[in-house]
Simulated scan of single mutants.
Amino acid sequence: MNAQIELTSIAMSKNDPTITKLDKYDIEANIEEVDNGENLSVFKYGFTALSNPKNVRLAIEGIARISGDSEERNEILEKDENDVPKILTMIYHELFPTFFLLSKNLNVSCPPHVIGSMGNLDISNTDVFQNSQSQTIVDAVLDSDSKQSDTVTNSDVSDVENNDVIQPTV
């Protein structure tokens, strides 16, 4: 099975700039199957994290393409022990770094990293996770940037046959 998660919309808002610590987040999730072929299922999803007290709103929408045989795709639609469809857990897991960065951009506590533990959030443990996770994310971004810069500096641009076409590097 292969999953491709695409973002189509990201929104964030913060009503009170002085609040940085939140008690918990209420996560609203929805998913709708828009196409089901022989080897591919396409789903439209949406996640909205609303803080409690109601100050912060983080929303992400997108498309998930799940390819594989029908048994694998049916298995991912089943619910887990927390009564959450496995596909929502998988998508949320892929989206968590985006939620993390959005919350850090707003200078607030991050939503929980596991969708099944929404009501069992302990903020003190989350802060420890956020600090270690933020360092991991920063290290990964810096490592990725250094690898890209090595690739760009080691390539010889004079060997390109058609100088009219420029390949962008991201």
Rank of each mutant, 00 (worst) to 15 (best):
I76L: 08
S109R: 07
D139H: 03
E161I: 14
S149Y: 13
P53S: 01
S146P: 09
L7T: 09
M12K: 14
I63P: 00
K24G: 04
L40C: 13
E94R: 14
S155N: 11
S132F: 11
D145H: 06
I166E: 10
G37C: 04
N163A: 15
T153K: 15
K104I: 08
T126F: 10
E6C: 09
D122H: 11
G68F: 02
K44Q: 15
I31S: 02
F100Q: 04
T48P: 12
Y45C: 00
P112A: 04
M90P: 07
D139E: 07
N30S: 12
L40D: 14
V34K: 03
D159W: 15
D156C: 05
V160S: 07
E78P: 08
I123T: 07
D26G: 13
P112V: 06
S132A: 14
G116W: 09
K54D: 11
T18S: 05
N125W: 05
I27Y: 01
E78C: 10
G46C: 03
N15T: 15
S70V: 07
N30Y: 07
L22W: 05
F100K: 04
L102N: 04
G37I: 03
I115R: 03
L106Y: 00
L40K: 14
L40A: 13
E75A: 12
R57I: 06
R57D: 03
D164Q: 09
Y25T: 00
G46I: 02
N162D: 14
E75I: 09
L88A: 00
D23T: 15
D139G: 02
V108I: 02
S158T: 10
Q133E: 13
N162K: 13
D127A: 11
M1S: 13
V84Q: 05
R65V: 12
T98S: 13
I123K: 04
H113G: 09
E81C: 07
N39W: 07
P168W: 02
Y25I: 00
Q135D: 06
V128C: 04
I31W: 05
P97M: 10
Q148T: 11
M12T: 10
L102M: 12
Y92T: 00
N162Y: 05
I123R: 07
I31R: 02
N82K: 10
A29C: 01
A64Y: 05
S144Y: 12
G46Q: 03
K79G: 06
L142F: 08
G46Y: 01
N82R: 08
N74I: 00
I27H: 01
L142A: 09
V165T: 08
L7D: 08
R73F: 02
Q135S: 06
I76W: 04
L50G: 07
K54H: 12
T169F: 12
L121G: 10
N30G: 11
K147R: 13
D139A: 05
T169N: 11
V170L: 10
T8F: 08
T18I: 03
Q167W: 09
P111L: 02
I27D: 02
S117E: 14
T153L: 15
S144P: 06
D69Q: 08
P85W: 05
V108P: 01
I137T: 04
D16C: 01
